[in-house]
Amino acid sequence: MATADDFKLIRDIHSTGGRRQVFGSREQKPFEDLVDLGWLKRSSVDSRATHYQITERGTSAAL
């Protein structure tokens, strides 16, 4: 179930172009929650960072 923080984060991601790069596993937790909701997808993972991209469902949630 989505929380107020989830909606705040997806709106922030949407307003800044729909993509986010995250460093460190602790910082990934809120983004992984949005992946579980179907609002974000992991577009790539490298040794230092994970890249996320907003989905259509995420765009709808952000509006």
Rank of each mutant, 00 (worst) to 15 (best):
residue 37 L to K: 06
residue 12 D to T: 07
residue 49 A to L: 10
residue 48 R to C: 11
residue 51 H to P: 02
residue 30 P to W: 05
residue 48 R to P: 09
residue 61 A to S: 04
residue 31 F to V: 02
residue 7 F to K: 04
residue 25 S to C: 07
residue 3 T to G: 06
residue 63 L to C: 07
residue 10 I to A: 02
residue 54 I to L: 05
residue 26 R to F: 14
residue 54 I to V: 04
residue 2 A to Q: 04
residue 44 S to F: 15
residue 37 L to G: 01
residue 9 L to Q: 03
residue 12 D to G: 06
residue 27 E to N: 15
residue 32 E to W: 05
residue 21 Q to P: 06
residue 28 Q to L: 11
residue 52 Y to L: 01
residue 5 D to W: 08
residue 31 F to P: 01
residue 8 K to S: 09
residue 60 S to H: 13
residue 49 A to V: 13
residue 8 K to I: 12
residue 4 A to S: 10
residue 29 K to R: 11
residue 57 R to P: 07
residue 13 I to Y: 00
residue 29 K to M: 07
residue 41 K to N: 10
residue 46 D to M: 06
residue 4 A to G: 08
residue 42 R to D: 03
residue 16 T to K: 11
residue 43 S to D: 14
residue 26 R to H: 14
residue 53 Q to I: 14
residue 27 E to K: 11
residue 39 W to D: 01
residue 1 M to N: 12
residue 32 E to C: 06
residue 19 R to Y: 15
residue 47 S to G: 15
residue 19 R to C: 13
residue 12 D to E: 14
residue 22 V to P: 03
residue 3 T to A: 05
residue 45 V to I: 11
residue 34 L to E: 00
residue 60 S to E: 15
residue 16 T to E: 10
residue 21 Q to F: 07
residue 20 R to T: 07
residue 24 G to S: 09
residue 9 L to C: 04
residue 33 D to V: 15
residue 58 G to Q: 00
residue 19 R to H: 15
residue 48 R to I: 14
residue 35 V to Y: 03
residue 41 K to W: 13
residue 39 W to F: 04
residue 29 K to L: 06
residue 12 D to F: 09
residue 36 D to N: 15
residue 22 V to G: 03
residue 8 K to M: 11
residue 11 R to M: 11
residue 26 R to C: 13
residue 29 K to C: 05
residue 58 G to K: 00
residue 59 T to P: 01
residue 63 L to Q: 08
residue 19 R to V: 13
residue 20 R to P: 04
residue 5 D to H: 10
residue 32 E to A: 09
residue 38 G to S: 03
residue 34 L to T: 00
residue 2 A to W: 06
residue 7 F to R: 05
residue 55 T to K: 01
residue 53 Q to K: 08
residue 6 D to K: 08
residue 11 R to S: 07
residue 9 L to V: 03
residue 48 R to D: 15
residue 34 L to S: 01
residue 38 G to A: 04
residue 24 G to L: 09
residue 57 R to H: 09
residue 2 A to L: 04
residue 43 S to H: 13
residue 51 H to D: 12
residue 34 L to G: 01
residue 27 E to I: 06
residue 26 R to K: 14
residue 40 L to S: 00
residue 38 G to R: 04
residue 20 R to M: 08
residue 1 M to H: 13
residue 24 G to E: 08
residue 2 A to S: 05
residue 5 D to N: 11
residue 7 F to M: 07
residue 46 D to V: 07
residue 8 K to T: 09
residue 42 R to E: 05
residue 50 T to R: 08
residue 2 A to D: 03
residue 29 K to W: 05
residue 10 I to G: 00
residue 13 I to M: 04
residue 56 E to C: 07
residue 34 L to V: 02
residue 39 W to E: 00
residue 2 A to F: 06
residue 3 T to Y: 05
residue 49 A to Q: 08
residue 46 D to Q: 08
residue 21 Q to D: 10
residue 61 A to E: 04
residue 42 R to I: 15
residue 55 T to P: 00
residue 5 D to R: 10
residue 35 V to L: 05
residue 36 D to V: 14
residue 13 I to G: 00
residue 23 F to V: 12
residue 48 R to Y: 13
residue 48 R to F: 14
residue 35 V to W: 03
residue 50 T to M: 07
residue 23 F to R: 10
residue 51 H to G: 08
residue 13 I to H: 00
residue 15 S to V: 10
residue 46 D to W: 03
residue 36 D to R: 15
residue 33 D to K: 15
residue 51 H to S: 13
residue 56 E to N: 08
residue 14 H to Y: 15
residue 12 D to N: 09
residue 4 A to R: 10
residue 1 M to A: 12
residue 1 M to V: 13
residue 47 S to D: 14
residue 59 T to A: 08
residue 56 E to I: 09
residue 48 R to E: 15
residue 16 T to I: 06
residue 59 T to Y: 07
residue 30 P to F: 05
residue 41 K to Y: 15
residue 48 R to Q: 14
residue 54 I to K: 00
residue 15 S to M: 13
residue 62 A to M: 03
residue 5 D to L: 11
residue 53 Q to N: 07
residue 53 Q to Y: 11
residue 59 T to G: 04
residue 47 S to F: 10
residue 36 D to M: 15
residue 6 D to Y: 07
residue 40 L to Q: 00
residue 15 S to T: 10
residue 3 T to N: 08
residue 47 S to H: 12
residue 1 M to C: 12
residue 51 H to V: 15
residue 13 I to R: 00
residue 37 L to D: 01
residue 15 S to E: 13
residue 21 Q to E: 14
residue 30 P to V: 07
residue 32 E to D: 11
residue 17 G to I: 03
residue 41 K to D: 12
residue 20 R to G: 03
residue 49 A to W: 14
residue 22 V to K: 03
residue 34 L to P: 00
residue 43 S to P: 04
residue 54 I to T: 03
residue 57 R to Q: 14
residue 3 T to D: 05
residue 60 S to Q: 15
residue 7 F to E: 04
